[in-house]
Amino acid sequence: MAITDMPMLAMLRSRMQWNQARQTVIAENVANADTPGFRPHDLAELRVDQATGSPVSTSPGLALTAAGHMAPIGQAEPGVDPRKVKDFEIRPSGNGVNLEDEMMKAGDIQTDYQLAASLYQHSLTTLKIAIGKS
């Protein structure tokens, strides 16, 4: 087993990849803020198996196992949950994107990613010290 395959490092890597994917979804929401009828999306919260560090599927029922499979009804992409938009947040054009909420999410994602990256770097530094390569 390689040093970078340790469960702690795998969990941090998974968290950083999830943050990257969520940032892409939030950016799409912001880009479509003026598109009539657009409803914002968000990723389901990441769950990680603590023993292996690998992500655990949070979607109940059907899951896509191959790229050619159709998504279950009501699910646009694997892991994407359409956000429940309150009726008063929807503009007359049918668009439900709230830019303030999306910017708050983007800030949270940035903070979370920086924390995970910092922990990953410090873990690698600690491992290097432990094996005698400082």
Score class of each variant (00 low, 15 high):
83 R>T: 09
130 A>E: 08
125 T>F: 06
50 Q>A: 11
85 V>S: 10
129 I>R: 15
119 L>G: 05
94 G>Y: 02
102 E>Y: 06
22 R>D: 01
89 E>H: 11
40 P>S: 13
124 L>S: 07
129 I>M: 13
63 A>T: 12
51 A>Q: 13
39 R>K: 14
117 A>F: 06
76 A>N: 11
111 T>N: 02
82 P>Y: 07
25 V>T: 12
9 L>T: 01
131 I>M: 12
73 I>T: 11
71 A>S: 14
12 L>M: 03
35 T>P: 01
64 L>G: 01
64 L>M: 10
5 D>H: 07
38 F>H: 06
70 M>V: 11
130 A>L: 07
50 Q>N: 11
59 S>R: 15
117 A>M: 09
112 D>G: 09
15 R>L: 14
7 P>C: 10
80 V>Y: 00
55 P>Y: 02
112 D>R: 15
36 P>D: 11
5 D>Y: 06
87 D>A: 10
116 A>F: 04
47 R>P: 01
34 D>R: 08
79 G>H: 00
65 T>V: 05
29 N>M: 01
54 S>A: 10
102 E>V: 02
78 P>I: 00
86 K>I: 05
52 T>C: 05
105 K>P: 01
74 G>A: 06
134 S>R: 15
18 W>R: 03
40 P>V: 05
75 Q>P: 05
101 D>I: 03
9 L>F: 05
89 E>M: 12
58 T>Y: 06
85 V>W: 03
134 S>A: 12
109 I>S: 04
57 S>M: 09
26 I>Y: 08
28 E>A: 14
91 R>K: 14
23 Q>H: 15
75 Q>L: 14
13 R>T: 12
93 S>R: 06
47 R>F: 03
64 L>N: 05
41 H>V: 07
52 T>V: 05
78 P>L: 00
116 A>K: 05
73 I>M: 13
129 I>H: 15
69 H>F: 08
53 G>A: 04
8 M>H: 11
59 S>M: 10
86 K>S: 12
10 A>Q: 15
20 Q>M: 14
19 N>H: 00
111 T>H: 06
42 D>C: 02
83 R>V: 12
39 R>S: 13
126 T>D: 10
120 Y>H: 11
80 V>F: 00
82 P>K: 08
77 E>N: 13
15 R>P: 02
99 L>R: 08
79 G>P: 02
33 A>G: 01
12 L>R: 00
16 M>I: 06
28 E>W: 02
33 A>M: 09
30 V>M: 12
102 E>H: 07
86 K>H: 14
118 S>K: 11
59 S>T: 12
85 V>E: 07
15 R>C: 08
128 K>M: 12
17 Q>C: 01
61 G>I: 02
